[in-house]
């Protein structure tokens, strides 16, 4: 047998080190049991779908991170809060967009507000959680909500007018990209 083919302790140890390094590398690149959703829509049905899936995921011990952007931001507004010092365009956005998840429209069959009213009644009848209850459950389960800073500036929303939510933060697109990058599931609604 040639000397180079001999199995020595040094070779084995070196190979072991090599394998260890590779395993660590793999472990670090493995996707976390985490769900990241970018919620762009501000329609009642879409916010509901996002929240229901998030709650189911959180119940299954999956970490959930929601990134609210564009029209989705309107769902986070607190109807009881008002802020002063907005410019004309921001005020217009504030007037035109729904004030909170209780005031959202349906993406289809809105019928000037009749649709959402009927939907809410139907949900109550069928024992589906209301959006209000869903946000409370989400808070309890530790679901994180991030509001997109850029769209907040664009539409003139201030952090003072958003709902009181325990796991709330304001961040940019890079935060979502970083979160989504390590999540096993990344969606957009």
């Amino acid at each position: 047998m040639e000397k180079s083919n001999e199995i020595t302790m040094e070779k084995l140890l070196a190979e072991l080190e090599n394998l260890k390094a590779k395993t660590t590398q793999l472990e670090n690149s493995a996707k976390k049991d985490q769900l990241s959703i970018a919620i762009i829509s501000g329609d009642m049905d879409k916010i509901m779908a996002g929240m229901i899936i998030s709650l189911a995921a959180a119940a299954m011990d999956t970490k959930v991170k929601l990134f609210f952007s564009f029209w989705g931001l309107a769902a986070l507004r607190d109807p009881k809060k008002t802020v002063k010092g907005k410019n004309f365009v921001s005020k217009m956005f504030g007037c035109m967009l729904p004030k909170g998840y209780g005031k959202l429209k349906l993406s289809k069959h809105n019928m000037c507000g009749m649709g959402p009213m009927m939907m809410k009644n139907l949900m109550k009848k069928q024992h589906v959680l209301s959006l209000d209850e869903m946000f409370k459950e989400a808070a309890e389960l530790g679901i994180e909500i991030t509001a997109c800073e850029m769209t907040m500036n664009l539409m003139g929303f201030k952090k003072e007018e958003f709902i009181d939510y325990p796991h709330f933060r304001i961040a940019g697109a890079a935060t979502f990209v970083a979160d989504a990058g390590e999540s096993a599931m990344q969606w957009m609604i």
């Binding site: 189911a56 024992h127 589906v128 459950e137 389960l141």
Partner: peptide, 13 residues
């Protein structure tokens, strides 16, 4: 029984 999906999962958790 008083809740629809995903209520039972939340209760179980």
């Amino acid at each position: 029984r008083g809740t629809a999906c995903p209520g039972p999962l939340l209760e179980a958790k």
